[in-house]
Design a protein around this nucleic acid. Structure first.
Length: 117
DNA sequence: CCGTTGACGCCAT
DNA sequence: TATGGCGCCAACG
């Protein structure tokens, strides 16, 4: 994945890495923007992760629905195509969603910094 | 070029 | 423990 640890990272590289990491999230598990941002070496750029995912629908096989905020809240559900809702997609994989919130979030949480390092 | 916005997160109350 | 404020970095108008 070639991420730079120089603090600064190239935008294109960052976006590409985000997609790759998200693709690595196991089915039925979820991760968080902050975790991914950290993994890419941009701790303070958690917002960029979400921004990057916003454009990951066009033809890309990126399971963006497996990425939620640090509270396990589906903060970006309204961004999903109406024919493929975020919560629906998650429940289809066995993830329970109640009031736009991932149940047992801590259990199914998947941290790239820990799981794959 | 400058101000605002946003799929977030941490720190201070 | 629950809220609110500030910081961060790109993209947009």
């Amino acid at each position: 994945m070639n991420r730079k640890k120089t603090g600064k990272i190239d935008r294109a590289q960052f976006y590409a890495d985000v997609y790759e990491v998200v693709k690595l999230i196991p089915k039925g598990r979820v991760s968080s923007y902050g975790a991914i941002a950290r993994y890419l070496g941009a701790n303070k750029a958690s917002r960029l992760v979400g921004y990057a995912l916003a454009g990951s629908f066009e033809g890309m096989d990126v399971p963006a629905h497996r990425v939620v905020n640090r509270n396990g809240l589906l903060s970006g559900a309204h961004n999903f195509p109406k024919d493929r809702p975020m919560d629906k997609s998650l429940e289809a994989e066995g993830v329970k969603i109640v009031d736009m919130q991932v149940q047992d979030f801590k259990k199914i949480y998947w941290d790239p910094n820990v799981e794959l390092l």
